[in-house]
Nucleic acid binder design. Structure first.
Lengths: 118, 118
DNA sequence: TTGACATATACCGATATCGGTATACGATGC
DNA sequence: GCATCGTATACCGATATCGGTATATGTCAA
């Protein structure tokens, strides 16, 4: 057995940094392949191949426009990624809450044992 | 050249579904390796190897406890993932806003051209 | 129709991964 | 010291990927 296919999952697709860069660029709106080539400095086949992977997992969609193909983000799939990671949010929030508690406690102690900041 | 190492990135690390399952399990709190083995039904070497990958990218941390090693999530690294995906949130929010607009418009039109639901 | 432009795809070699199995390492308790 | 428990690691073969280069496909314009 080997590693899961990059086209098996949005998670596998975004593992590659170049593809994340493409997504970031497309966040500014629909773009043609050559626009991405110019903007990111990749070769044209590279960009086309990365887009093909992301089309396969529905991270982007393409529409024809003359000789161009305009790519745009698929919000729904990005949202799936977001929804997976979101529940973990409570981990650092809890941590901050606890830290807040500690700070409050320290402040209370400080008020009792000292007359002000040093 | 080949695919980026699974240990090069938190993104590459979470590409594997089994590792995401481990993270989900650890969300319930610190666990020993065998706890994960029992809970997820993986073999012990599998779990140890996945944990090693996630240790390498700082997704989890381990502490010794007698013969056991207790693993826990590293909130900071999970947060990095969250922070990357979060800016895309506006994409589906915008879309919903626009949808709301359309719905409102349709409702207004409906009020003008019809006397009720068909 | 021919040529230019825009994009997609085929081919290549190198490589890091996966699960499985066996075993090494390390701590505990008797 | 020795057996046992808990965990980490080494080895294996199979495989899907990566970038680069060349080329196929498709669309427009003259």
């Amino acid at each position: 057995m080997a590693r899961a296919s990059t086209t098996s999952d949005a998670f596998n697709a975004i593992a590659e940094g170049a593809r994340r860069e493409v997504l970031e660029a497309l966040a500014d709106g629909e773009m043609a392949v050559n626009d991405l080539v110019a903007r990111l400095g990749f070769t044209q086949p590279q960009v086309s191949k990365h887009l093909a992977v992301m089309r396969a997992v529905d991270l982007v969609t393409a529409r024809a426009d003359g000789r161009h193909r305009l790519y745009s983000l698929n919000a729904a799939t990005l949202r799936d990624l977001y929804e997976w990671i979101k529940p973990f949010e409570r981990l650092w929030n809890e941590r901050l809450d606890r830290l807040d508690g500690v700070v409050a406690e320290l402040a209370a102690t400080h008020r009792q044992t000292s007359k002000g900041p040093s």
